[in-house]
């Protein structure tokens, strides 16, 4: 469904000079600063898959999504979405993708939610009967009925997000790009968003590219993740493989009689009872627990390694 090969995007900005005459120099010189936001990224996503596209701030995630939507043209490399080159065939591509940004809304701030949803129906020329059906489904799935006629500026963040999800899916695009869809939401709202994504994917076989910093989203929804940093792919594969390959060792954490807490790494293949016996021979143990590595510690470790 989505094929990206050696995708590269270089931004070129006039060099800014500092000092009292800096702005003038910036204006008259023809010197540029180049910044490579995406650097030779390749991946393929088959139809119906939910993929987590992860990376720290500034890793190149949003730039990739913008190229996938056809808003940005790549500097180099190949990009194909549903057999089309997004930036060359922007209009057809636009009809095939839905986009949600957690940080910005496509809803008209001063108007009731329903006005923005109707506008989407008009812009994508959704036939009246299909629109009514889609809207009904969205209302049921996302519980929009209570605030359909409320101006968007009066909605809570969770309600607004649900409105944005509906707007992105009203014309049944086969591909959905989600950029931090749960940012700032409370636990219940996050749950509602995740359920909607899972449901959309299950019913419509919608292909989903999910960008997020909330690894709980990834654990709940994705089986595969693509990890990028500084514009390069660091890992592409199943979450289980990632944990096996990169997981730091499990740790035995003991609380000692004198209120001191100490942690011991459990080497792969070593016996835990033996380790406990060894520790308790030297200290008086009041409590102990074994810490399993979580996805977060795994990813932290990969980022740290790529820094080196």
């Amino acid at each position: 469904m989505i094929r990206v090969e050696s995708l590269t995007k270089v931004f070129r900005r006039p060099r800014a000079f500092s000092g009292p005459l800096g702005p003038l120099r910036t204006l008259v010189t023809r010197r540029y600063d180049e910044r490579t936001a995406v650097d030779g990224v390749s991946f393929e996503i088959p139809e119906g898959e939910i993929v987590g596209y992860l990376g720290p701030n500034g890793a190149g995630k949003s730039t990739t999504v913008k190229m996938l939507t056809g808003i940005l043209t790549p500097t180099d490399g190949l990009i194909e979405v549903g057999g089309r080159v997004p930036w060359r065939d922007r209009e057809a591509n636009a009809r095939a993708v839905g986009v949600v940004f957690g940080q910005r809304s496509q809803l008209w701030w001063d108007l009731p939610l329903i006005d923005s949803l109707r506008l989407v129906g008009d812009l994508y020329d959704v036939p009246a009967a299909r629109f009514t059906g889609s809207l009904r489904r969205m209302c049921d799935l996302l519980g929009l009925d209570d605030f359909l006629h409320t101006p968007v500026r009066q909605l809570s963040l969770g309600q607004r997000m649900r409105g944005d999800l509906a707007a992105a899916m009203l014309y049944d695009p086969p591909i959905l790009y989600l950029d931090e869809p749960t940012v700032g939401l409370d636990v219940m709202a996050k749950q509602a968003v995740r359920e909607f994504i899972a449901e959309t994917n299950r019913i419509g076989r919608t292909t989903v590219v999910l960008t997020t910093h909330d690894l709980a989203d990834v654990e709940a929804l994705c089986r595969r993740i693509i990890l990028i940093d500084k514009g390069r792919v660091l890992f592409d594969g199943g979450i289980d493989d990632l944990v096996t390959a990169y997981a730091p060792p499990r740790r035995l954490v003991v609380e000692l009689a004198d209120d001191e807490t100490r942690a011991f790494e459990i080497a792969a293949g070593s016996s835990i009872p033996e380790l406990i016996a060894r520790v308790s021979a030297e200290h008086t143990i009041r409590d102990l627990s074994i810490h399993e590595p979580d996805l977060e510690s795994v990813i932290k470790r990969i980022y740290a390694e790529s820094e080196r």
Binding site: G70, R95, Y124
Partner: peptide, 13 residues
């Protein structure tokens, strides 16, 4: 300024 122009540019129209 708010970046929502992204959505306008991503429309078929």
């Amino acid at each position: 300024r708010t970046g929502t122009v992204f959505f306008d540019l991503s429309r078929p129209t």
